[in-house]
Design a protein around this nucleic acid. Structure first.
Lengths: 124, 124
DNA sequence: AGTCGGTATTCATAATAAAACATACCGTTA
DNA sequence: TAACGGTATGTTTTATTATGAATACCGACT
């Protein structure tokens, strides 16, 4: 049994959650991170950098730079861009791009799962 | 053998390294992250927030805020502060503080090791 | 040839975050 | 009680980063 009295000094236990973030670096800086991968995903979905950026409320400026940066740092470009033409142009993922997105998420999931398992042992 | 000719289309394979970062969140925001843990470690080493901050080129302002924040979010304060006195005061880690540092690094190592193992399977 | 819509690029501006500065407070010791 | 050195706190600059606006370019299509 427990007396109401006990509650006086009872502090609610806080709840903590473990967060993990991973990214891939190349000699010139960041190659792939969560934001970039989501951008890639959106390019695949929408067919253009412009719309991919809108999708995630990122400025076109930044989205374009990310794409440029990733393509330069990859062994094979991840995004193929088209200039002019019927709909003004657009962008799509290369095979390497598709694969990079999948690999990243796969790895992230695996690590996140592992981290959460390990985290249950923690007590702060 | 290999012909010089082969080199014309040879691109140097880029080298990638996987980076991992983890932090613990509470309802009010970040509770523990790498920077905060290193700060704790330095407080333990130097006996004051001031010197701990200097050690890592962090402004006292920020260091103090971090400490305040951590203490508020922890079930038990991680840092015990002393005001005035012989050397003007100081700060030291509580048992919970020591334990938090150890736990964090232990977890980080485990996850980093796992991540690196998984990363070897990656190809970009 | 002119329209359309996305890419490519520069420049100015806003939003955020971090550092620097300035002061008051605090308690032991000389 | 005056000095010292760290804590406590607000304010002001600086630095970093992201956004927005403006413009040129490109190529299929009508």
């Amino acid at each position: 049994m427990r007396y109401a009295y006990d509650c006086i000094s009872m502090k609610k236990e806080k709840k903590y959650t473990l967060r993990v973030r991973l990214w891939v670096e190349e000699t010139n800086g960041i190659f792939l991170g969560l934001g970039r991968v989501i951008l890639l995903e959106n390019i695949g979905k929408t067919g253009s950098i412009t719309n991919a950026a809108k999708e995630m409320k990122m400025s076109y400026r930044q989205a374009w730079q990310f794409v440029e940066d990733m393509n330069k740092q990859a062994n094979v470009p991840l995004v193929e861009k088209m200039l002019g033409g019927k709909n003004g142009g657009g962008a799509r993922l290369t095979v390497a791009g598709e694969s990079a997105v999948k690999s990243y998420f796969k790895l992230e999931n695996k690590i996140r799962k592992f981290a959460n398992k390990e985290a249950t042992k923690l007590k702060f």
